[in-house]
Design a protein around this nucleic acid. Structure first.
Length: 281
DNA sequence: AAGCCGATCAACCGCAATGTT
DNA sequence: CAACATTGCGGTTGATCGGCT
């Protein structure tokens, strides 16, 4: 036996609200206050389901709703809260005065989520995507290929530019291979520079500190891995340079290396007989 | 000018949690 | 305590709009 419907479907209007309906709802709530949504439409003279009235009020008509573009601070808050709370939109909305859960959810799905993905950040875990870390290891191995030039050309033409962009962030900035750099930059059209990582992009309302914080996120990921409760241990032959090549002097590298040496999980070493051409079709 | 397509966001749906009788 | 009603929440849908061909 199923639940009884929240409202009588017959004679209940659906779809976009008219200005007249809005005014009726506002007038009624102004006089009686919100609540009692089941009987509200009848009393207010609306051919609507109570649920629809509640949604219209809480998401659109409430006087304390702030409309318009999300500010940089608001977006940052959403990202931080989402990394802790996940898809608890109402809890996130509670920390953003004037914003509704529906509005935040929509903004996340249409803007923030896509931007994180473009930056190589998993929007669910807020960590760098491990498949892209695999890629960085793969590309790192390219440097050691004797026929690097032709292989790099193939790679840059076959791979998604966004993937290459992230890979370029993870790969050695201190050890630019001229062939690799020119191929990569051609493919990306906008050359990657080390300073770009810490500067806001002009067209974006949000600085790219998703990228600048990628090492922190990666460290957090490594913490999880090093603790041993995420994935089983692997071989002893960990090759950090094949994973990433942060400058030797970088404190991040020391941190990552220390973590890596305590774990053998990131074993991205390639066998001697590995033929990249076979892998790349 | 018309058609297509992707982005956006208001609104809906179903379920879970909570309150009431 | 069970049954039912109400409210809240998150996922999804679909109408609309603007850009592109």
């Amino acid at each position: 036996m199923g639940r009884s419907p929240c409202c009588d479907k017959n004679g209940v209007k659906k779809g976009p609200w008219t200005a007249e309906e809005d005014q009726k709802l506002i007038d009624y709530i102004r006089f009686h206050g919100p609540g009692n949504w089941r009987i509200l439409p009848k009393n207010a003279g609306l051919q609507r389901c109570g649920k629809s009235c509640r949604l219209r009020w809480t998401n659109y008509l409430r006087p304390d709703i702030k409309r318009g573009r999300f500010s940089f601070e608001e977006e940052e808050t959403i990202i931080q809260l989402h990394s802790v709370m996940g898809n608890k939109w109402s809890a996130i909305a509670a920390r953003l005065p004037g914003r509704t859960d529906n509005e935040i959810k929509n903004h996340w799905n249409t803007h923030i989520r896509k931007r994180l993905i473009r930056s190589g950040i998993d929007p669910v875990t807020h960590s760098p995507r491990l498949d892209l870390l695999d890629l960085s290891s793969l590309l790192g191995a390219l440097f050691n290929q004797p026929n690097f030039s032709s292989v790099a050309t193939q790679a840059s033409s076959l791979l998604n530019p966004d993937v290459l962009r992230l890979a370029s962030l993870l790969l050695p900035l201190q050890n630019p291979n001229p062939v690799y750099s020119s191929n990569l930059d051609q493919n990306l059209q906008t050359p990657i520079t080390s300073s770009e990582c810490s500067q806001p992009q002009a067209e974006s309302t949000t600085p790219t500190n998703n990228e600048t914080s990628s090492f922190e996120l990666m460290n957090a990921r490594l913490d999880d891995v090093a603790s041993g409760d995420v994935l089983p241990p692997l071989s002893e032959s960990f090759d950090l340079d094949s994973l990433m090549s942060t400058p030797i002097s970088s404190p991040q590298r020391n941190s990552i290396e220390a973590e890596a040496n305590s774990s053998s999980f990131f074993d991205f070493g390639f066998p001697d007989d590995f033929i990249l051409d076979d892998f790349m079709f």
